[in-house]
């Protein structure tokens, strides 16, 4: 019975992935991908990875999905895969295309089929390495937190997490570069309904508090900085859509401070303990719990700011490039 659930879930994920690539309409693609993300999130929970499940649903499906949906505005909606070929001349090209693409696709198909066989063979015959379950459990007492995933993320492998916060900040910078200028404008998709705006205003603190709870709860159970960050980021996005363009209002230094606080504090704290002779990101076990909570809170704040900023920036990308309302 339980194996049946696994099989169904696996087939569902594969089916949704396949469909999202083959769907004739772009919007279908995006929504199917969103569904694929949710299916994966279910899979994670089924596999006992609740943290991963929340992260997948919130970030991979939720946040990326929102960005993809926002991007849909740019592209012609009714284009099907067959006619997509670059421009209007594709109709007469398609017959020629099918011939010229037949052989490469055949080769690709064969190659990938072979690859799949080797991959499955390899995965099924992967020797049982045992993982690090026992070791991470044994060290949990020294890590300052009770939840093993949080211990790995912020203590055992805190260095990875620190770099990852850097990746998010860098992603934001990269998006600025890609978009041309670092400017925030009033949102394009304004919520005009006054009632809805009141609802948004009401929900903002609720979301914020729920995020804070997740952050704190991460110490002992599923949750933590990333999950909290998405909720806090969502408040920023909602405020933005509700007509309170946060980034156009707050001063530049504050914005930069919010963005860099997580990365910077994490590092400076590490440096401070290094000056005392410890290794980087090594905390004394007695204070580890508190320190990790502070680091997590600041990291979540920075990630939330970055996520909201990315959304705000995406949301204005279709606008006229010259119309500047708040420069950097």
């Amino acid at each position: 019975m339980s194996v049946l659930i696994d099989i169904v879930l696996a087939i569902l994920a594969v089916y949704l992935a396949l469909q999202s690539l083959m769907a004739p309409r772009l919007s279908q693609s995006v929504f199917l991908f969103f569904a694929f993300g949710l299916a994966l999130a279910l899979t994670w929970i089924r596999l006992g990875a609740v943290d991963v499940g929340i992260a997948e649903a919130a970030i991979a499906a939720g946040f990326l999905g929102v960005l993809l949906i926002d991007a849909l505005r740019d592209f012609s909606p009714a284009v099907s895969e067959k006619q997509e070929g670059a421009d209007g001349t594709s109709a007469d090209r398609s017959t020629k295309d099918t011939k010229s693409r037949l052989l490469p696709s055949l080769a690709l198909g064969l190659g990938l089929g072979l690859f799949l066989l080797i991959a499955v063979e390899a995965i099924w015959h992967t020797p049982k390495g045992g993982g690090l379950t026992a070791l991470s459990e044994a060290m949990l007492a020294e890590s300052g937190v009770e939840h093993p995933v949080t211990a790995v993320l912020l203590n055992y492998r805190g260095y990875d997490t620190w770099l990852e916060i850097g990746v998010i900040l860098m992603g934001l910078l990269a998006i600025f570069v890609a978009g041309g200028v670092e400017v925030y404008r009033k949102p394009r998709v304004l919520v005009r309904d006054p009632l809805l705006r009141q609802v948004i205003l009401f929900f903002t603190p609720v979301l914020f508090l729920f995020g804070a709870f997740l952050l704190y709860y991460g110490k002992s159970g599923p949750g933590g900085a990333f999950q909290a960050a998405v909720l806090w980021g969502a408040t920023g996005i909602l405020l933005h859509l509700g007509g309170w363009p946060v980034f156009a209002v707050i001063p530049r230094w504050l914005r930069q401070l919010l963005l860099t606080l997580g990365l910077g504090f994490f590092l400076l704290l590490g440096f401070a303990f290094m000056a005392g002779g410890a290794a980087l990101f090594e905390y004394p076990p007695a204070q580890a719990g508190v320190l990790i909570l502070i680091v997590e809170a600041l990291a979540a704040l920075s990630i939330a700011t970055a996520l909201a900023a990315i959304f705000a920036y995406f949301n204005q990308m279709k606008d006229e490039p010259n119309e500047i309302e708040s420069t950097t």
Binding site: L132, L135, Y156, R157, G158, Y159, A278, A279, L280, F281
Partner: peptide, 13 residues
Amino acid sequence: IHILGGWDPPLGI
């Protein structure tokens, strides 16, 4: 070498 976080491999980096 520098043992990050004071955790020896395989747990640490």
